[in-house]
Simulated assay, not measured.
Amino acid sequence: MKAIVLKEQGGVENFTFESVSVPTIKDDEVLIKVRAVSINPADAIVRENKSVSWIFGEESSLILGWDVSGQIVQKGAKVIDMQIGDDIFGVLRHPYIGRTYAEFVAAPASQLAIKPKNSTYEEAAATSLAALTALQPIQKVGIKKNDRVFITAAGGGVGHFAVQFAKYFGAHVTALASSSKKDFVMSLGADEFIDYQLGPFENTLKKDMDLVIEAVKSDGHIMRSMEVVKPGGSLISLWSNITEEENLKAKSLNINAFYNMVSFNGQDMKFVAKLLEEGKLVPHISKVFSWKDIAKAHLEIEKGHTQGKIVIIMD
């Protein structure tokens, strides 16, 4: 089968296109003919940063990717709720690599959901890792109707899903993004918008947020976001662990600040599939690339200003 392989971790020039063996499935797995994958900022980090090489496990060929959408072409003996020919999508094996940048991928059936008929392969692939990254911590804090929620980087891959999930659960959403994304973010259902380019948001907002979803990867941003959380509220960091300094500040403010690492979860994917089918969750795809343009896709995600998601078609 064809696959996008890294010669070694580093720049996009290390991507190669090779023929590798079709993976063998276990009894609880299915073999997927990959139709689309989505690119996340974490893909670029893993591609470049050798300090996270453990993510590849013991695999000899370095194949990236967690998100996948495609069709089942083979299934293991213990797989009973999915059939050959089913269209599926999901997040595979995170934080270990799912190896989805390939023509075929072996996947535990428990990590997948049936793709809604009203969603394309591209839309389903886009609504995988980024969607769970937003959904899982929101569920963890027990978001309630009328909670006041502040979402940073609200126009990005994770942020645009966070806005939609928060509104689904009945929250009042204040979104932070650049002015160029205002119309987009408001169209997702945000109640209020703040342009981060106009000055410190912590000087504009009252300290009355029940929850902050911190999706900005920037030194000092978590400390600033804590300023708008009310006592007893929560701050979720989606990028990095809470430092000792940040933890001390959180305690002094009587707020719950924590890092949440997304994990594969078939039940969560089924919930996402339900919302997609009902039209209550809509992925925004800013650009679609051919698999042969994987280097261009990675360079695009590295700019850090993507509106919504970037998708690769495995044509």
Results as ranks from 00 to 15, higher is better:
Pro23Asp: 01
Ala125Thr: 04
Pro23Lys: 03
Gly57Asp: 08
Asp208Trp: 01
Leu276Phe: 09
Pro231Val: 04
Phe150Cys: 01
Ser51Gly: 07
Asp191Val: 05
His172Glu: 10
Asp210Ile: 07
Asn241Val: 13
Asp315Ser: 05
Phe15Asp: 13
Pro200Ala: 12
Gln9Val: 12
Lys296Glu: 15
Ser290Ile: 06
Phe201Ile: 10
Arg99Ala: 14
Lys167Ile: 09
Ala166Ile: 05
Val229Leu: 05
Glu244Tyr: 02
Ile114Met: 13
Arg224Lys: 15
Ala125His: 06
Lys167His: 05
Leu31Pro: 11
Lys145Phe: 13
Lys145His: 13
Asp81Phe: 14
Ala175Thr: 09
Glu300Ile: 10
His305Gly: 09
Lys230Asp: 07
Pro23Met: 01
Gly85Leu: 11
Val68Glu: 06
Ala109Met: 06
Ser60Pro: 07
Met261Ile: 07
Glu13Ile: 02
Phe56Cys: 12
Asn260Glu: 14
Glu227Leu: 02
Ser38Glu: 11
Pro95Phe: 11
Leu135Asn: 01
Asp28Ala: 11
Leu198Gly: 06
Asn256Val: 06
Leu31Lys: 04
Gly304Trp: 07
Lys309Tyr: 09
Thr133Leu: 05
Glu48Thr: 15
Arg148Val: 08
Met226Leu: 03
Ile72Gln: 13
Asp315Lys: 04
Tyr96Glu: 13
Leu62Arg: 09
Ile151Glu: 00
Ser286Leu: 01
Thr204Arg: 08
Gln83Gly: 15
Ile32Trp: 10
Thr100Glu: 10
Val311Gln: 02
Ala154Glu: 06
Ile138Thr: 09
Phe258Lys: 04
Ile84Tyr: 04
Asp28Asn: 15
Val216Arg: 06
Lys26Gln: 13
Asp219Asn: 06
Gln139Lys: 14
Thr152Phe: 02
Phe89His: 02
Val30Leu: 03
Asn254His: 05
Glu245Cys: 03
Val216Pro: 14
Phe150Lys: 00
Phe201Leu: 09
Lys50Asp: 08
Thr243Gly: 02
Ser69Ala: 11
Ile294Gly: 06
Gln74Arg: 12
Lys33Glu: 13
Val185Trp: 00
Ile32Tyr: 11
Glu59Asn: 14
Ser218Phe: 12
Val52Leu: 11
Glu300Ser: 12
His298Lys: 02
Pro116Arg: 04
Ile255Met: 00
Glu59Ala: 15
Glu277Ser: 14
Ile310Trp: 03
Glu214Phe: 02
Thr120Gln: 01
Glu18Ala: 15
Lys249Met: 02
Leu92Trp: 01
Glu227Asp: 08
Ile194Asp: 04
Asp147Val: 08
Val105Phe: 03
Ile285Phe: 12
Lys280Asn: 12
Thr133Lys: 09
Asn256Met: 02
Leu132Lys: 05
Lys206Trp: 09
Val79Met: 12
Ile138Phe: 08
Tyr196Leu: 00
Leu62Pro: 05
Asp191Phe: 05
Ala36Ser: 15
Ser290Gln: 09
Asn40Lys: 13
Ser237Arg: 07
Ile143Trp: 00
Gly10Pro: 14
Val46Tyr: 03
Leu6Phe: 03
Leu198Phe: 04
Ile143Glu: 00
Ile72Lys: 11
Gln139Tyr: 08
